[in-house]
Design a protein around this nucleic acid. Structure first.
Lengths: 203, 203, 203, 203
DNA sequence: TATGAATGAGCTTTCATTCAT
DNA sequence: AATGAATGAAAGCTCATTCAT
């Protein structure tokens, strides 16, 4: 009963395949036939769903950005609104840090950087989806901690921003813009440091 | 006395043209004919000098890296081995910061990042030429300042690294990986801050 | 009572849309999707009614030929079988001449000429429907004029043929094979001349 | 010693092949690969010489028009400036009429008509080269006949125009716009009639 | 050495046509 | 009967690269 056709299925399959192929080969070297093959559809089907290669690229990155954003938000959601903030924040920091360094996030950043010339708006757009929403959600959670008395009075937006900066800054630097894969222990260490600093300063 | 036909001249013209075209269009969009035109030679001449487009790309980036490196070293050379270290270091910092943000340096970084997939070794190579030598030379000068008593005892290599990190980190972040052009005042401010921090800490 | 879904309606809508699109774009440049859109149906519906694009083309031209033929016959029918032949023939000549120069007739001829290579039989077929029937009907009417004594004795078929030649020949030449739109006055003048010649010769 | 390369050779070969293929298949159905094959070159060579298919089409028709024009002029050149005008004109008329009905001339007209929609300027351009020059040259010769006393005083331009009209008009009509091939005898008859009419009227 | 000319390979895109519902 | 979705096939065009002079 599992129809393997279905317009939505194919669209999603194409988006996934496109992101994978683009991530592996880059925008120019990736060819549409390869994407179609990877998606298990014919080439014109790709063009039935997306006007051209450019549009497909943007859509694939947007979809990936959504997935990354969702994962990030899930990590934030796991910060308990009560209970020990150190544990919560550390756990969230580790989850975020790992997500930051996984294949998808790295590919998303790499592709965005590499195509800055051709798709200048991507940097902003992707950032808005991934980082913007994340900062907002994090600020929300922090606000509850403040209200609950676990965090001392502060501007949650500012603290959220700093928290994220403490995470991503070192990760980007150490991984050389996502070029090098970091060992899990190092990722956790960065996360722990970030959480520790925030807790010390604001708890 | 400048023969305009000399082999060396042509080679250099091709390298310059290649870098310019690559910088403007990116590796894939740039085509060899355009480079040949910009260099004022015929297309096969390009291939007489460079095996293929990849080789040309690497050579063009290497040449640009050399030029950037030379400029950077010149800035370092202007640090007086004696005299007021604050003035010296501030001047050097400004010179370096400006060089960091000029067209050539930005293009060099942009191209390197964008082609990480296809030319993975470029990041290391370019970095070695531009940043590595620079750090070395800077450490050398700092050592003389230490020896001369203008700087307190320290490991010059470490201080040099930190000095450069204080320069490039903020510049990269503020310019969004070289995407946005920074106003001169902001560049100088970053440079001044970096110098100030170093001087305060180590003078 | 005009159901807008009826099979016949759709078939006719498709034929009309097809002719319009073919007329505008030519056979090759016209695409079936565009025709379907113009007809307000889905593409497969077009294929439910017509085997393929070729068949559709032939059918669309045949339908247009029928319409042109009907209009031509109507013009001929208005020749009074009695009364002043000069007035009758002049009026009929003008009506025919105008019809000859309208969008539909011109498009029909243009398409037929342009696709002589791919659809060689069209020239004959279309001609039979438009010109053949017309000549016949005209000959019939002329015969009645002869019988009624308004025209002197002659072979009505020959006179009909000459009448039409006197109309279409100059119109084709002046309009450069239907390329240029003629002013109404010029069309009328050609018609008047044709009628005058016939009347002078045979009345 | 017969190099089969040579830029000019190839260009001409491409033009010839293009005209042949276009003549056989029409503009849309003809594909560039086929033309390249027929010319014995690779596809990109076609594009090295002509920007795109449109340009190639125009160039091929222009070249054919030149050839047709040259042949026509040659026929006119054979009108003796003295001697019996009836013989001269009849001979020229036959030569022109035959040329008018040969493959190349017919294909040139057919292609021009068929692509009026896409290349509206071709009709005028081709006509200027083939008919315009011809009428001029013919008028020149007729003028000499007038001066020599073989033709009575008249406007040579007018007579030339009428002469050509008497040739091409019937030929176009009888061959159904070049669709049907006429027997040689019929062609000659048309030519003879045209010459006879001119001679009777103006000799 | 430098070049005008040529080419093999490949890519994006389009379109007539057909399934499956 | 009508349609949303999918596809096979092909075409125009570009480009890195190489002959042959």
């Amino acid at each position: 009963m599992t129809r393997t056709g279905g317009r939505i299925d194919k669209r999603q399959a194409i988006l996934d395949a496109a992101f994978a192929v683009f991530a592996r080969a880059g925008f120019d070297a990736a060819n549409v036939q390869e994407i179609a093959d990877a998606a298990g559809v014919a080439k014109p089907t790709v063009y039935n769903h997306f006007q051209d290669k450019d549009t497909l690229f943007r859509a694939a990155l947007a979809a990936a950005a959504e997935q990354v954003a969702a994962a990030n938000l899930a990590a934030v959601a796991r910060i308990a609104p009560d209970g020990d903030p150190r544990r919560s924040l550390t756990r969230a920091a580790r989850a975020l840090a790992r997500r930051c360094c996984d294949e998808q996030s790295r590919a998303l950043r790499t592709l965005t950087y590499a195509q800055l010339g051709r798709f200048p708006e991507l940097l902003t757009d992707v950032h808005a989806v991934t980082a913007g929403r994340l900062a907002d959600a994090l600020a929300d959670r922090l606000a509850r901690l403040v209200v609950g008395g676990q965090l001392r009075h502060c501007d949650p937006a500012v603290v959220a921003e700093q928290f994220l900066a403490l995470l991503t800054g070192p990760l980007e630097r150490r991984s050389q813009l996502g070029t090098r894969r970091l060992p899990a222990a190092e990722i956790d260490a960065v996360a722990d440091n970030a959480a520790e600093t925030i807790v010390r300063t604001f708890a």
